[in-house]
Simulated scan of single mutants.
Amino acid sequence: MKYNQSNTPIVCFQSQSTCYRGTKPMVVKGVLWHSTGANNPNLSRYVQPSDTLALRAQDTYKDRDEALRIIGVNKYSNDLNHKERSMGMNAWIGKLANGTIATIQTMPWNWAPWGCGAGSRGSCNDGWIQFETCEDSLSDPAYAIQAYQESVELTAYLCKMFNIDPHGYVDFKGVKVPTIIDHATSHALGLGNNHGDIAHWYPKFGKSMATARDDVAAVLAGASNVIISAPSNTTDTYPTLRRGSTGEDVKKLQNTLLQLGYALGAIDGQFGPATESAVKLFQGTQKLTIDGIVGKNTWMALEAALKTKETPIVVAKTYTATIRDLTNEQAQELKTKYTNCEIKEQ
């Protein structure tokens, strides 16, 4: 686990914020994930140290200048510690000033956040520790997966601290609620307002609350090899394939070639001689380098050919035949039947 008693997240309590000054303690039941819905992955946008040393007494960095060097400076002073706003989280995940991704705890864990609002049945604000992850443009797999990994590590740390089963449920307000949920799920259960996070972001990269629960459980079980990564088709739109390659990307290639009229045999995900020959034939028709290697240019040509549904015609050779005493009708019939032959009338 990344976090433990000797290695805790950075603490920078937002003790001047509206939520910090107005909330109350709660009995912890679970952990709820949020993401901001704004293209700014920097923690400094939302989190800044308090102005007086007394208010920073519990912070990791008592010196305000040092805290700003670590977190970054919000020159507009529109962070949640210097702006009256009826919302607040127990923690935030995003980029520090040096670009590394980290967690900052902004309230005590057992203080009720003002995070998910309320639905028809009530609110998960009464029982679920909540953290917000700073979004970027939602198109960078590397940032998405690193932010997800940090979220898993933080959640595992909190589950261990409060004895939470990551696959468990809690009977709350007449509803069976997962211990680990997101804002979208709280709304669906009638326990939060109408927001879609994080369902609009992480599923783009193969992650969800289901994978989060599994990954948190693995971290809690002490697995040292929990490696969280994006699926291959999200990290590289045009994976380089060659003879010997295997997997789903090869199946996609084989299926595309088959649709374009190339004989391959089985769609088996094995880049063997038949697939290589088909690739070389296709490259030849597209005036590409004929090397049997599928890189970006070959992928793009395949996509373009598939869109136009142009099945390539491979002409082995053209023959000339001379046949005597044919009528015009007979000559025309031969020309139609033997398209690779030149029929001369004598």
Rank of each mutant, 00 (worst) to 15 (best):
G88Y: 09
G295Y: 02
C159D: 11
E248A: 15
L288Q: 12
S35F: 02
T23L: 11
P273F: 00
A199G: 01
Q332L: 09
G168I: 01
S50C: 09
L241I: 06
W109F: 13
Y143M: 14
L55M: 12
E135L: 10
T23R: 13
D325T: 00
K83D: 07
Q346A: 01
E150V: 11
S17T: 11
L334H: 00
G174C: 13
N98P: 14
V73N: 03
Q14P: 02
L258Q: 08
T246L: 12
V73A: 03
A67V: 06
E329G: 03
K173Y: 08
D249M: 15
A212W: 10
S77N: 13
C159F: 08
T289L: 11
R69K: 15
S77E: 14
T18R: 06
A301D: 09
A156K: 12
E66L: 14
Q16Y: 06
Q58V: 03
L96C: 01
G272K: 07
L220I: 15
Q48T: 11
L32V: 13
L326S: 00
G30F: 12
S139L: 12
E333S: 08
K204N: 10
L288V: 10
Y238T: 12
D165Y: 14
I227K: 14
G37Y: 01
I71Q: 06
H82T: 11
Y143D: 07
D51F: 04
Q254L: 05
N125R: 02
L138Y: 15
Y20W: 15
R64P: 00
L53W: 08
K252G: 05
K337D: 02
K62S: 02
V294I: 07
A118Y: 09
P9R: 04
E342V: 09
G88N: 02
W201H: 11
Q130T: 15
A97W: 01
L68W: 01
Y46N: 07
A199E: 02
S139Y: 06
M26R: 06
S229A: 14
G269K: 07
A278W: 08
F172H: 10
Y46H: 05
G174Y: 11
N74G: 00
T339P: 02
V11G: 00
R121M: 13
T308M: 08
G72E: 05
T103S: 12
G168D: 04
T285P: 00
C341L: 08
S123D: 10
F162L: 12
A223V: 10
I70W: 00
F162G: 12
T298S: 12
F131D: 04
D249E: 15
S77L: 13
N225H: 08
